[in-house]
Amino acid sequence: MKTFLRVRALLAGAALVLGATAAQAEAKYGPGTSDKEIKVGQTIAYSGPASAYGNLGKVEAAYFKWLNEKKGGINGRKITFISRDDGYQPPKAVENVRSLVEGDEVALIFGVLGTPVNMAIRPYLNAKKVPHLFNAAGSSAFNDPKKYHWTTGWQPNLHDEAKFYATQLLKLNPNAKIGVLYQNDDFGKDMLAGLKDGLGDKADKMIVSAQMFQPTDPTVDSQMVILKNSGADALFLFTYAKQAAQAISKAADLNWKPHTFLHLGSASIGATLKPAGLDKSVGVMTAGFAKDPSDPQWKDDPAVKEWLAWMKENMPGADTNDALYAMGYAAAQTLEQVLKQAGDDLTRENIMKQVASLKQFRPELLLPGSYINTSPDNYAIVTFMKLQKFNGKSWDFVD
């Protein structure tokens, strides 16, 4: 009997060892991942002309810290988030990314700000087969799975956003005279091209002036004077927060009140409209895709209440009127979902497979009706938009 029990115990022990070995064998790891950790890298503008957008990186860092402390990370693995300042300078961003990939050996790069910066780092990351995920940039070039398998955006793409504005303007005033202020890079040019596509054969006649600026220009005052003098009664601001605030303020100073459409990435009450002057910003329109927690219409929304409580606990003192915090929070949740789906296969290849396999996923700070569905042929993440207008305090949807 003792011999039988001893044999059974040995067999049970062997089964446990074999089971553990099999479980370990099933787990697959790539660079920057292990049974305890997932390394995520980021380069973003904490300084320079786009420094207002550094709030994206700050809230993402706070979210991953909270995940680690409150939920034990993702699938039992802590997130090590390494975020570095690039000052919105593409060469510095390339340097940061090389250091993150080759020095820190991160698993992926996440949430990089700006079309020109992402364009600069995209060739390197695709050559190295490193996931380049959920850029805070809207170029349609970031949804090209066949040519750039490792790169994806997050927000609605710039080209479609500008086409959306063209459609809305044609409803408001089909004979409008249009002035455009655009940043002289891939971001601004992509939006200008989308606007022209949306206007169709009316584009050349309707656009009476298009003025460009460099991201490092101290002001856009001279461009705004030219645009007003062109006789334009509709204004498109294809700019980031600093120049958008300057343009809105200058238009008011010039007593110029065109129908104004603002790039959604700059439609932040805290980062753009407050610096411009809330009174001067009344009537500005943009493409909404997320709930603005400062908007009274969402005051009883459970997701907004939960987010406000989270912000109070994890980012005390932060201005919750700044929509960038909500955007970064939702983007971080999207990465969390991808890594959850990846399970114990944390190879870079499987991470990209999960990026292309999001189904009916919706961070609850996105507008109702906005669901994320991706496929191997389509990496578009957030696609749903609604026109909204600023009333001096918050955004109202335009029917």
Results as ranks from 00 to 15, higher is better:
residue 309 A to K: 15
residue 258 P to I: 08
residue 202 K to V: 10
residue 79 I to N: 04
residue 191 M to W: 08
residue 159 H to V: 07
residue 229 N to H: 07
residue 16 L to R: 08
residue 229 N to M: 09
residue 162 A to E: 06
residue 128 K to D: 10
residue 155 Q to R: 15
residue 213 F to K: 09
residue 371 Y to R: 10
residue 215 P to D: 10
residue 314 N to E: 12
residue 349 E to W: 02
residue 376 P to L: 04
residue 108 L to V: 02
residue 318 A to S: 14
residue 274 K to I: 14
residue 225 V to I: 15
residue 225 V to D: 11
residue 150 W to R: 04
residue 43 T to Y: 06
residue 63 Y to Q: 08
residue 67 L to A: 03
residue 302 P to Y: 08
residue 368 P to N: 06
residue 96 N to D: 12
residue 124 Y to S: 03
residue 159 H to N: 14
residue 104 D to Q: 13
residue 165 Y to H: 07
residue 360 Q to H: 12
residue 95 E to C: 06
residue 312 K to R: 13
residue 214 Q to P: 10
residue 135 N to Q: 14
residue 71 K to P: 00
residue 170 L to W: 03
residue 118 N to W: 03
residue 66 W to D: 13
residue 395 W to E: 08
residue 216 T to M: 12
residue 250 K to F: 12
residue 218 P to Y: 10
residue 78 K to I: 11
residue 259 H to S: 13
residue 315 M to N: 09
residue 136 A to E: 01
residue 210 A to N: 09
residue 101 V to R: 05
residue 36 K to E: 14
residue 224 M to T: 03
residue 312 K to P: 09
residue 260 T to A: 00
residue 63 Y to T: 09
residue 319 D to F: 07
residue 327 M to G: 02
residue 24 Q to D: 00
residue 20 A to M: 14
residue 35 D to V: 14
residue 100 L to H: 05
residue 54 G to Q: 08
residue 21 T to Y: 09
residue 323 A to H: 01
residue 362 R to D: 08
residue 35 D to A: 15
residue 281 S to A: 15
residue 50 A to R: 09
residue 222 S to M: 03
residue 34 S to L: 04
residue 249 S to F: 13
residue 73 G to H: 08
residue 31 P to L: 06
residue 302 P to D: 10
residue 199 L to C: 06
residue 158 L to P: 10
residue 378 N to T: 00
residue 95 E to H: 08
residue 66 W to N: 11
residue 90 P to Q: 08
residue 228 K to N: 04
residue 330 A to Q: 14
residue 231 G to V: 03
residue 27 A to E: 15
residue 387 L to G: 01
residue 330 A to F: 00
residue 278 L to G: 11
residue 27 A to Y: 02
residue 321 N to S: 13
residue 48 G to E: 07
residue 294 S to K: 02
residue 353 K to H: 13
residue 127 A to Q: 15
residue 274 K to T: 13
residue 287 A to K: 08
residue 2 K to M: 13
residue 333 Q to N: 08
residue 372 I to S: 00
residue 296 P to N: 02
residue 80 T to H: 13
residue 353 K to S: 10
residue 170 L to N: 08
residue 230 S to Y: 10
residue 196 K to W: 00
residue 398 V to G: 05
residue 171 K to E: 15
residue 247 A to M: 01
residue 102 E to C: 05
residue 336 E to F: 02
residue 123 P to M: 05
residue 339 L to C: 01
residue 229 N to Q: 15
residue 192 L to Q: 02
residue 246 Q to M: 05
residue 298 W to H: 06
residue 207 I to E: 01
residue 62 A to Y: 07
residue 15 A to M: 14
residue 256 W to R: 02
residue 240 Y to T: 11
residue 274 K to Q: 13
residue 239 T to I: 07
residue 159 H to F: 15
residue 57 G to K: 09
residue 114 G to D: 03
residue 365 L to E: 05
residue 291 K to F: 05
residue 237 L to H: 12
residue 275 P to S: 04
residue 9 A to M: 07
residue 154 W to P: 02
